[in-house]
Design a protein around this nucleic acid. Structure first.
Lengths: 147, 147
DNA sequence: ACTCAATGTTGTACTGTACAACCATTCGCG
DNA sequence: CGCGAATGGTTGTACAGTACAACATTGAGT
């Protein structure tokens, strides 16, 4: 009660609800689109591609996951031949993770089929609307407290 | 680099990436905000409040979850005293689920603290931008293939 | 009455995750 | 130098969330 404001509260409420609704479905949706690459794996590989390789610790920080979780995920990805570990020459504690060719290829295919789905979903949108929506999302995520 | 792409592809790519990034963090984020109410529980309770009660099957369809998953989730929520089951008078197969007072209260508190977080995140935004962003999200989710 | 569909529960297995304990390496400093 | 703290990562353990398959119960149509 009391939040019947037609002003700022209203939009924020809607944004909250709709972002949550999307998040809630994302995993199942991703799983249906790509049985071979879970949402987690997909995002980890994406980050590796984005950065051109990084450390496990960086992944953990970026995705707010425990280092043990990353360790196991990376282990699985390595076993699947999608990433490789390279020892940092100057520091033998760290392993720099890189996509393998196979990883790059799989990521590419996943990204493509996801893009098709998004494109379909956004089919009726005008170009200015798409640009503004993209801009809003960037701005929203840039404000993430987690980095 | 990257965003200098002209045309529809660029924006769609960004939307895809940013929506995914958000989804990826939502769970951990929700967990940190509300250790007592997971993202799943929160969304289930929200739906119940929204609809003023519904069947387990409806929840399963809406969230693309298996009925067994819903069954267990609802079981836990009932055990926690957050929802109650009412037998449909005319059909003893179905149980209509309703929030209890306790469930309503907990949901309210969770929603409030989430709203605070969202509000903070959106602090620098102009009112027209908020409205447009909300509108875009509604429009995007309305196009969900899953209903 | 018999069969079939709808609703939900239970058995089982697997993924993703956190936390704590641990190992290995490096760094800071007396 | 040498030791303790910090950093990066792995392993043990436990638990939540999820799916799939098998099942029980109830209602509907013939």
């Amino acid at each position: 009660m009391a939040e019947n404001e037609p002003g700022p509260g209203g939009s924020i409420e809607i944004i909250q609800r709709e972002m949550t609704a999307f998040a809630r479905r994302a995993r199942a949706s991703a799983a249906r689109m790509h049985p071979e690459l879970s949402l987690v794996s997909f995002t980890l590989l994406s980050h590796l591609e984005d950065r051109g390789g990084c450390r496990a610790t960086d992944l953990a920080a970026y995705y707010m996951l425990d280092k043990s979780t990353i360790s196991r995920q990376v282990g699985a990805l390595e076993k699947a031949g999608l990433v490789e570990r390279r020892l940092e020459p100057g520091d033998h504690r760290v392993q720099v993770l890189h996509l393998t060719e196979r990883g790059t290829g799989l990521l590419q295919r996943a990204t493509d089929s996801r893009r098709v789905a998004f494109r379909e979903r956004l089919a009726g949108w005008s170009e200015p609307d798409l640009e503004r929506f993209a801009e809003y999302l960037l701005r929203y995520n840039a404000g993430a407290p987690e980095g």
